[in-house]
């Protein structure tokens, strides 16, 4: 034979799954909610989303260039982070909020800890927490959807009795996102649609979103006065966005099946406790961040039983 053969150990074929395909799926799943937020919050939304995404991508490229690492913006993970961050800021925010947020998410939370797969927290959520702590007024200045944006409170704040003179929006408005809130978390229906797409594509599995939402539902049903409030709690705040898109972040959630279930339940419990007894009407981002920190421990203590493993002394 005149040419050399490639020799390697098995397996010799690979699936056609790639990182960029997974990230593209997440972007596709976020698209309906993105379009809705632009529809509801007009140019402001578009501006914030574009700035967040561009800053995320540019920061990633810049840092990788400075560190002389291969530049991997093609894998689209920075786009996802930028998009998710934009989803977490109010439409009334000034232009520099997404810029600072995205730069922080990529530079500090993601790249400083080793890049893709090594961030110990969800970058978008950590950036949101930083923004909220630094500019609390800007980050909670909610406006109504539509061309004449006037100040309003989020449904959950109204539910919590923090906005005495306002009435709860109808469930229909809550479902379709015609309410005050962050850019991307308003339309429950479109987020569920995106989540189902991710489940269908196998990008995420059912464990975290279902246990998360289920736990919140059960706790609200028991501790917050019944079915009606429960429905608002599930569909009105950031729960859908958090459960399907944030808590399922690969790097900052457990990989073991049992770990994922505990993680989901933990997120649900903390969210409910913050919403019911804490100072904030919303609790999704802090609950996920807190559970992010215990994810490695969950992995460590929930190794699945190996097939055929003999039980050792109970």
């Amino acid at each position: 034979m005149d040419n050399k053969l490639i020799v390697s150990s098995s397996p010799h074929i690979r699936s056609d799954e790639t990182i960029s395909r997974i990230m593209l799926d997440v972007i596709i799943a976020l698209l309906p909610a993105t379009l809705a937020s632009i529809y509801y919050f007009r140019f402001n939304a578009l501006k914030l989303i574009v700035l967040a995404v561009l800053t995320a991508v540019a920061t990633e490229a810049l840092i990788q260039k400075l560190l002389k690492k291969p530049i991997t913006v093609n894998d689209l993970s920075a786009v996802v982070t930028g998009l998710l961050l934009a989803f977490n800021i109010p439409s009334s925010a000034p232009w520099w909020i997404p810029v600072i947020g995205s730069a922080f998410a990529i530079a500090i939370v993601k790249q400083a800890f080793g890049g893709l797969g090594h961030n110990f927290m969800n970058p978008a959520l950590a950036a949101r927490a930083m923004l909220l702590a630094s500019w609390p007024v800007i980050m909670t200045n909610w406006v109504t959807p539509g061309p004449e944006a006037v100040s309003t409170a989020t449904p959950l704040a109204i539910l919590k009795g923090e906005a005495a003179n306002q009435v709860l929006p109808s469930l229909k408005d809550v479902f379709f996102g015609n309410v005050g809130g962050c850019l991307g978390e308003t339309s429950a229906i479109l987020l569920i649609l995106g989540g189902l797409y991710l489940l269908y594509r196998g990008v995420i599995n059912w464990r975290i979103p279902f246990t998360y939402i289920g736990t919140v539902a059960v706790m609200m049903l028991i501790f917050d006065g019944g079915f009606n409030n429960m429905v608002y709690h599930i569909f009105a705040g950031g729960l859908m966005l958090g459960a399907f898109f944030m808590a399922t972040d690969y790097a900052s959630s457990p990989v073991t099946p049992k770990g994922q279930i505990i993680f989901g339940i933990g997120c649900g419990v903390i969210t409910s406790v913050i919403r019911l007894y804490g100072g904030y009407p919303e609790g999704v981002s802090y609950s996920i961040l807190l559970m992010n920190i215990v994810a490695p421990l969950l992995d460590k203590y929930t190794s699945p039983r190996v097939f055929g493993e003999v039980k050792q002394n109970g």
Binding site: E17, I19, I22, S77, G115, L116, G117, H118, G202, N205, Y250, A251, P254, V255, T256, P257, Q260, D299, S303, P304, R305, V306, F307, G308
Partner: peptide
Amino acid sequence: QCIRCGKCVDICPVNLQ
């Protein structure tokens, strides 16, 4: 880089990680 997607854990027929 490993992105910790956990697919290898999901599909391992002997439940390894």
